[in-house]
């Protein structure tokens, strides 16, 4: 469990980092929180020849929240975002989801953008970004930054639109629309483990407290986070009846879980339905109290 040899770079500025990454091409890998990358390297499952450690680039350690939404810089740790009152006010789903991300010691090191770029379909943050229709900002040496929508960013398990030579500098999570509520429900084998199934929900109500839109994002049940719009199934019903067997069935039909050593696909499908109901019920309740 020792990594093979690699070159180590510790740039101080984004520009410097981009230069190294451009030079390294496919051999380069960015180290931020290291909570996935370091174990992968120690187990020799990943062997990047050049490691670009961005931990000294203070300019990336930012979290800003305004009426438009929350922008999280590439060095912002899970714990910082989780504890930010400004973030919770503009987009409460982030804190709700982050509480399910592993354990406090991991959240103290791991980064939000790192988790998104890692693109694990079982992780919470890609689902949050996908559900909210957020974006990822990618930078490259000698080229303008590009803003990639979540729907185009997640391509498959551990596969994203990030190209060799690019650095994800921030992620943007749109603010909670008025009259809306969110929730994140998940079930793991142990507290803090990767979820067997998990569902993020966003519900928006009109002035009569009837559902106008209802969406869920499901984790661990497909190659990328699976976003299901169940507004039609909710059909302008009152908030209190956001969850229904029809909604659960619609979600179950859309997900494609697989068997693994912890659970069967059938059980995961069932759980996703149960959790969709629970998350929608909770989100609608929060929307009506909002």
């Amino acid at each position: 469990m020792k990594p093979p040899p690699f070159d180590y770079h510790a740039p101080r500025t984004v520009g410097e980092a981009l230069e190294v990454l451009a030079d390294a091409g496919p051999e380069g890998k960015v180290l931020a929180g290291g909570q996935s990358l370091i174990p992968l390297m120690n187990m020799r499952l990943a062997a990047p020849a050049r490691l670009v450690d961005i931990n000294r680039i203070g300019a990336l350690d930012t979290v800003t929240a305004d009426a438009r939404g929350v922008r999280v810089g590439a060095l912002a740790r899970h714990a910082t975002v989780e504890r930010s009152a400004a973030v919770a006010e503009r987009q409460p789903l982030l804190r709700q989801a982050l509480r399910h991300v592993a354990h406090p010691v991991i959240r103290n090191r791991g980064t939000v953008v790192g988790s998104i770029v890692h693109a694990d379909p079982a992780a919470e943050l890609p689902a949050v970004l996908a559900l909210l229709g957020g974006t990822v900002r990618l930078a490259r040496h000698g080229a303008p930054e590009r803003e990639v929508p979540a729907a185009e960013f997640f391509l498959g398990p551990l596969e994203s639109a990030l190209q060799p030579g690019e650095l994800a500098v921030s992620a943007f999570f749109p603010a909670l629309p008025p009259g809306s509520g969110t929730a994140f429900c998940e079930i793991a084998r142990r507290h803090g483990d990767f979820a067997l199934a998990g569902v993020a929900a966003l519900v928006t109500l009109d002035d009569d407290l009837r559902i106008t839109t209802a969406k869920v994002a499901c984790i661990g049940v497909g190659p990328v986070p699976v976003v299901v719009d169940v507004s039609a199934e909710c059909a302008r019903r009152p908030a209190a009846s956001a969850a229904s067997p029809a909604v659960a069935a619609a979600v179950r039909d859309r997900v494609e879980p697989e068997d693994d050593i912890h659970a069967t696909a059938e059980y995961r499908r069932h759980l996703t339905g149960v959790l969709a109901e629970r998350a929608l019920r909770l989100a609608a309740e929060r929307a009506s109290h909002g």
């Binding site: 084998r189 067997l196 912890h262 069967t264 059938e266 059980y267 069932h270």
Partner: peptide, 8 residues
């Protein structure tokens, strides 16, 4: 026994 097994 796991939850998945109890489910089945």
């Amino acid at each position: 026994i796991s939850p998945s097994e109890l489910f089945h």
